[in-house]
């Protein structure tokens, strides 16, 4: 690794560290005058501390909004390459893209193409997802032949039966409500708590400029 490359890595790690720590402290300590006691000037100090996070988050929002341009460029680049290798569907994609741009330029505000093509296709795909879920659900015990797989299937069956509009199955509704409120609610919270803990550890790594994405 050359000296220039090492300098680049150090610089990007330093910038990431500086921006990360500034934003984190600004978010954690800003906008609360009570944190600095009831002394004169506490309010201005709280606002001052909150300002960098506010500015940096606005900047991030703008960059994220602009990233859709990168997405479209990537899509065109990838499929132009595939077209060069003779992929037919890439030609269809590029032609559809060109046609949609032409349509929007010549008929600004016209959503008929969206309603006539995209919505029905997405609805059909949603139905396909439902079928895939059903197919996958039916094979759970084949993949997970243990107590947890059995429990998973039992819960799915109870919830589905309780959702059926049949008077005979009404007693199952109380079971379904309890299942959804207590075990499912607890499990969901546990997963989300775990994800939050993981996010803190990963965030800390990024904050300290240790993440691979900022180490060049």
């Amino acid at each position: 690794m050359g000296r220039g490359q090492r300098f680049g890595i150090a610089l990007s790690a330093f910038v990431a560290f500086a921006v990360g720590v500034t934003t984190a402290l600004s978010l954690l300590l800003g906008d609360n005058p009570a944190l600095f006691g009831n002394q004169p000037g506490a309010e201005q100090l709280a606002e001052l501390i909150a300002a960098p996070a506010d500015a940096l988050l606005r900047l991030a929002t703008i960059v994220v909004a602009l990233s859709i341009v990168i997405g479209i460029a990537n899509l065109l680049y990838v499929h132009a390459g595939k077209l060069a290798r003779g992929k037919f569907y890439s030609a269809v994609l590029l032609a559809s893209f060109g046609f949609t741009v032409f349509w929007q330029v010549t008929r600004p505000g016209d959503t008929s193409l969206l309603e006539a093509a995209q919505l029905p296709i997405e609805s059909a795909l949603a139905a396909l997802v439902a079928l895939s879920l059903l197919h996958g659900g039916s094979r759970v015990l084949g993949k997970r032949a243990d107590i947890w797989g059995l429990l998973f299937v039992a819960v799915v069956v109870v919830v589905l039966l309780a959702s059926a509009p049949l008077a005979e199955l009404a007693p199952l509704q109380a079971w379904r409500d309890w299942l959804m409120r207590v075990p499912v609610g607890a499990g969901a919270r546990a997963i989300l708590l775990g994800v939050a803990l993981g996010a803190v550890v990963a965030g800390t790594r990024a904050l300290l400029g240790q993440d691979r994405s900022v180490r060049g």
């Binding site: 659900g137 998973f152 969901a188 997963i191 993981g198």
Partner: peptide, 25 residues
Amino acid sequence: SDRLEGQAVAYAMADEYLIGEEIFA
């Protein structure tokens, strides 16, 4: 997946799955 719907699908359908924070580990 970090989303619960995706996590449920992963558990039911994938050959192998991780749960919640295991993606970070």
